[in-house]
Design a protein around this nucleic acid. Sequence first.
DNA 1: CATACCTGGGCAAACGTTTGACTTGATGGT
DNA 2: ACCATCAAGTCAAACGTTTGCCCAGGTATG
Lengths: 374, 374
Amino acid sequence: MKRRGGGRGKRDELRRARGIVTLEDVARAAGVHYSTVSRALDPSKVWRVNAVTRKHVEAVARRMGYQRDMVASGLKRGRTHTVAVVVADLGNPFIAPVLRGIANRLESAGLMSLIGETQDESKRLARILDHLLSRRVDAIILTAARLSDGPALRRISRKGVPVVLAVRDVPGIRMPSCTNDELLGGRLAAEHLIGLGHRRLAQLRGPRDVSPTVERAQGFSKAVAAARAVEIVVRSTATTPTPDEGRRLMRLLLDGRQPPPTAVFAHHDLMALGAMALTVERGLSCPDQVSIMGFHDLPQVDRVTPPLTTVREPSEELGRIAAEMTLAILGSPDQSPASRRLPPTLVVRESTAAPPGQRPAVLDPIGETVRKST
Amino acid sequence: MKRRGGGRGKRDELRRARGIVTLEDVARAAGVHYSTVSRALDPSKVWRVNAVTRKHVEAVARRMGYQRDMVASGLKRGRTHTVAVVVADLGNPFIAPVLRGIANRLESAGLMSLIGETQDESKRLARILDHLLSRRVDAIILTAARLSDGPALRRISRKGVPVVLAVRDVPGIRMPSCTNDELLGGRLAAEHLIGLGHRRLAQLRGPRDVSPTVERAQGFSKAVAAARAVEIVVRSTATTPTPDEGRRLMRLLLDGRQPPPTAVFAHHDLMALGAMALTVERGLSCPDQVSIMGFHDLPQVDRVTPPLTTVREPSEELGRIAAEMTLAILGSPDQSPASRRLPPTLVVRESTAAPPGQRPAVLDPIGETVRKST
DNA sequence: CATACCTGGGCAAACGTTTGACTTGATGGT
DNA sequence: ACCATCAAGTCAAACGTTTGCCCAGGTATG
């Protein structure tokens, strides 16, 4: 039986009421076959149709307000023009610019971003990834990978969906990635503090089991060791980086059996702020008695007292680049996975200074140094 | 010709390589018809299939890693299980919690969120809305509506896609909305300042042509008028609320021909911070000479100097509620559009005080007052 | 004039689900 | 023994595109 043409049933009425115009409707109105309409409207196929018919079809289509149904198209073509962006925590201020970079770049390529939040729970990650597979997204940009997520990633990779790692890497996996150079970030922090004359340092780590934390920590520790300075380690438990967490770790440091450090490097500005708050509550002055620095250069941290020394990462650009890598893969699927690392910069403000009883030391020996006030 | 069953072509090989298992594959393996598989796996249709076949089919499906293709399903059912969230500016810190509230609530209902950013440009909004229609999203949550977007919204509404307005309302349009009570927000600000004894006030408006700005302004102005105090108006130009914008407007105020106000209400914390910076640069003290307050209670504004008095809005909850309204509409499409307004709360900190040469006045007469330090 | 070739367009089979209609065999009532 | 009822499955037509293939005419070539 023929499905097309002829009398329109109540189904058609319904569709029309919802304002949905199909290829067939346009074809009927234009007096051509619907495949011709399809071609006339597809830039990559227009050459199959005569210029004058094309003009005509285009006019009719525009007049009727035709819009290609991306769902049907997606089913047929196997391309949904959708990329999923998976983040750990939408509440974390530093993820916003990344998201923005991604969404804007993708949109300018005609793709849209589906977003999912894992809260750093493996269960949720797994559920979300399954969901995304089921939706046949064209690719996944994963900013929420934990070091232990390797197996899950391999599983999904085997399903044939391209995955691009952003922000967080997971070593030993064959996937393109775009991350900050956290090793350098940690080193910049350490060398800044050491350059000021500090010899007893500590770091407040971020969430465990994610690459930025371990790399940043490693970069810091190595630089401290290289300078023959002392690092006081504080056992960090897995959690999200909040001011409260910063307080907690700082308390451990101040109440520990070892004499407290004169300089503290927090892996997240929020933790640094918490640590700072606790420090002044204890009657200690920052930076006179304890130098504290953070990470990420969140908005407004230049406005707290004292303005926070921190390390800035090019978040929006990172997002943009991750999106671009994704587009590249969609363009030519089987290239070997590239890997980009973006360099962070040190932002010196006033929460760090020479240790008590010591004159200000030499300038920073390495790294680009930025003095920023807005 | 029969399409199903029998010899598998190279197409099937390809599908298998990508790890895509279809109903048909499962059916073949389970020895039943694929429609039976479809029903066995659809909770709302299981009653049509015998318990033992169901178990069997389920087992086979799980073993083969079958995942329903949501694209195909969406095409057939007309439901994509996707909701679009359109925001004006992903970089604006106060949108993050809203987004989070929405995404989480939707996800717990099995929907996912597509995100789009308009940058407050009508062109982009139009383009994005078209795109979304084309993707057949189930609904649109619009946090980026401008007052002048009425026509565009009506157009899209006629297409039959439910639109829920969040954060920004557009009056005179028949759409459900979930917004903050900005009128109250403005009033809270005004009454706080007036309660401190100020008689010459000013406000630094946010982006023009959006409902929060005009309502907040109106709430403020009315309360000022009611108290027979003076409002010094500063002409605000359309823009995004940044510290720089705050500086600019504050400069206008200080350099104006009228004597400057003793209290300033900025529609956005970032603008307040900018205004504060300019104020101290001019050698004026905040709050001793000028009281400055903001809006939104962004993270960290309690840590600047002086800690910022502001108005807090329940952003994440607003997002959650907007999502819930959306779900309600998807559940029963033609209910009359509801409208929720959430009450903001005043957060008094140290950037506001009695005007110069006046003793501290009585307490706030109205509104919930919160003293917050973290 | 027959052949090859090109251009422009129609035909219909997919893509993977969902679902109304239909078949079949078993049960129950009279 | 006969019809109605019912449970459990099968059949096949959609959903709206995309696209390989075929066909009709026109033009160039032998």
